[in-house]
């Protein structure tokens, strides 16, 4: 694992991103140390998803830089060769950084087992038997061993999201990004998904989680980052953010969750 001089695994500097005329990210600076769980909070539309997608190379950036594991993403739209270079780097980053989506995005035409083995076999050319035994272990880890041959549509939302995490884990990532992983779930299914992330945190996985689950954030996060209108307005330990927020906007935002 490559970490920066400041000890960060993920390091974002003055990141700016526009969608058309709309400035979605207006200069984000962020560092994530290996093994940390960072929770990203902020009102809807403030740019949380866009930030995560940038970190994974799913979006291009307008200026600034993202360095993950020593690979740097920068502005790419100026020429074709730079664009190609960007794609290559984005793929290099995705080898180490997994992503979990709000709506799970499992592959509906594949069983859970196939969902989990597909990428290792296709991308890493992993031996099929090996991929299978690894997938079985991952299913045990997320408590879905009985559902290996089921299709996503036969599972509850909580089960689907756990399967999605297992699918990301199959690529042996160093970090996982979660974009509101529990927002689409019935309240009584939220817990089982958070539990998986807690276990991963205990095992030392680097994680960034966009969520509105403030209890979870307070109990598990190492850092909380609060965004508004494309900017980070406050950053700190759960203690600092929840007990003595410095910024008025943070105080106001958190009031909604009390």
């Amino acid at each position: 694992m490559m970490i920066s001089a400041t000890g960060a695994y993920i390091s974002v500097k003055n990141l700016k991103k526009k969608h058309g005329d709309l400035a979605v990210l207006c200069g984000i600076d962020l560092e994530v140390t290996p093994g940390e769980l960072t929770v990203l909070i902020g009102p809807s539309g403030c740019g949380k998803s866009t930030l995560l997608r940038c970190l994974n190379g799913l979006e291009t950036l307008d200026s600034g830089s993202i360095v993950i594991n020593g690979v740097a993403l920068e502005r790419s739209e100026d020429s074709k060769s730079i664009m190609k270079d960007f794609d290559k780097k984005a793929r290099a980053i995705r080898e180490n950084v997994g992503m979990v989506f709000q709506s799970f995005n499992l592959f509906p035409h594949l069983t859970l087992l196939e969902n989990i083995t597909k990428a290792p076999v296709v991308v890493k050319k992993m031996n099929v038997d090996l991929a299978h035994s690894q997938a079985k272990e991952l299913l045990i880890k997320v408590g879905l061993e009985r559902h290996a041959d089921h299709y996503p549509c036969q599972l509850s939302g909580g089960q689907q999201q756990r399967a999605a995490i297992a699918r990301a884990l199959a690529m042996s990532p160093k970090a996982i990004l979660y974009d509101e992983p529990t927002s689409a779930l019935d309240p009584d299914l939220v817990h089982e998904v958070l539990q998986v992330m807690r276990t991963l945190d205990d095992e030392g996985m680097t994680q960034i989680v966009v969520t509105h689950e403030m209890r979870f954030a307070r109990d598990v996060a190492d850092h909380i980052v609060h965004m508004q209108e494309g900017r980070i307005v406050e950053m700190g330990t759960p203690e600092q953010i929840f007990s003595s927020p410095k910024d008025e906007r943070t105080r106001r935002f958190l009031r909604n969750f009390l």
Binding site: N56, R91, G98, S103, A119, K124, R167
Partner: peptide
């Protein structure tokens, strides 16, 4: 979102299309 999920797993565009 299916394409995004495939990309996020490290697949190239061609692999994502094919599989």
């Amino acid at each position: 979102s299916q394409m995004d999920a495939a990309f996020a797993l490290g697949m190239s565009r061609l692999e994502a299309l094919r599989h």
